[in-house]
Write a protein that binds this DNA or RNA. Sequence first.
DNA 1: CGATCGTTTGAGTTTGATCAAATGTGGTGG
DNA 2: CCACCACATTTGATCAAACTCAAACGATCG
Lengths: 249, 249
Amino acid sequence: MNNPLLRKLANFTHLSDDECSAVNQCCNDASEFAAREDVISQGDRTGGVKLLLEGFACRYKVLEDGRRQIVAYFVPGDLCDLRVFILKRMDHSIGAVIASKVATISPENVLQLTNRYPNLTRALWWATLVEEAIAREWIVNVGQRSALERMAHLFCELLYRFRAVDLNHGNSCTLPLTQVELAETLGLSSVHVNRTLQELRRQNLITLEGGTLTIQDLEALKELSFFNPDYLHLDYSSEKARQVEREAN
Amino acid sequence: MNNPLLRKLANFTHLSDDECSAVNQCCNDASEFAAREDVISQGDRTGGVKLLLEGFACRYKVLEDGRRQIVAYFVPGDLCDLRVFILKRMDHSIGAVIASKVATISPENVLQLTNRYPNLTRALWWATLVEEAIAREWIVNVGQRSALERMAHLFCELLYRFRAVDLNHGNSCTLPLTQVELAETLGLSSVHVNRTLQELRRQNLITLEGGTLTIQDLEALKELSFFNPDYLHLDYSSEKARQVEREAN
DNA sequence: CGATCGTTTGAGTTTGATCAAATGTGGTGG
DNA sequence: CCACCACATTTGATCAAACTCAAACGATCG
């Protein structure tokens, strides 16, 4: 199970060996992208579905006057909308933040998967719904939360998402963003990001260095930012919970 | 064609009579909601897919301390995620802003539609993708744009969306929100919304009274807010364009 | 060893928030 | 018809959060 997508989907349901290998076969067409290289750019014709296998990437939009807003992060296992190919052109860009490995699943393969494996299809829909929920939460984040809360909330979300694909190390995960990029994510200036980071460090809530984020006090960070993980729908009450239980015994 | 959903989908593709009547049959189970009444609340078990037939509604999330963020508007013809029922519980609420008529399409009916009508299914996917694109644009809006730009951008979007379902009157459309609700949409204080509205009026760009928004100078408003309608994927280059052309001749 | 990029710091400014009060506006009941 | 109430809008004054500009500092890399 070295496919992060499969690890992610396991949070929603159990997948059969058949389903797993079908997914794996679709991921053969993978290519490498350099740090800060676009995987696909605003205005491009849409093609297959992009799946991040390794690395870290983001969706972003650029305004005519150059302002940039990052609207989503891609953690390994994340894919862009299953149905992108329905649209003619991309209305935003996807860029690798660090060197990344991205699989492209052709429209045909997507349709084959969804035609043959209903259970897998449900899992992919789940992933899509979670992606949408995250976008909504980001609106709440920039719309309502203060700079400190905003950043804290983002960090909580990231840890949860890395955990969901087993790519955390305890309360640490990779976060290879510059402060400028963090600013473009949070709707703040880079100077203010710097000061907000310092404040979080001062309160001994996090450390962030060398592209690694460590959350020293997750509970405090969650409380500070009103973080409620429900929107991630990491539904440990179902399959995975039972599996976790079995392993625990 | 008095079903706003069908009018909306016509922006993407031509639907056969069969497909149209299939959709219409699914909309029989409709109920009325009073102004400011919740259609479905955060934490509720998910049920069928909600489709707004008449009125105006919004998605919103409430933080523990009472702050509220509206994360989406529903214009007639809009539906919430086709696959909500995959999730156990709602992570946000949907509320009627004014008295509204909402159809509930059962999961079974959704599955039947998508099994039988591939073309219709593509159209529904398109609608879902547009919804996601709007959410991303809202992140850009609150993240990067100034109060004035933000409000102008929202108004442009609204007009385009009402146009897409033929519910505009020239450059006017319904906008039955209080300034407090506008504030909760734009991530501003209600006081500042008031002043920003005044500024837009002072520049003779809009009027807003009695729940009706009129855009007096759409071009100027678009320019002011860097509004680029691409993200709405109202693809007049395809079917509808041809239809419009035919009608024009 | 410059050159480049990212981070940090300081000072001054601006945007937008908060608080408080006044002013419409529509609806209800006497 | 008017008094009253609830609610929304408008205005003013004050204040804080966050931005901008500018410069310095520190890594890393060819």
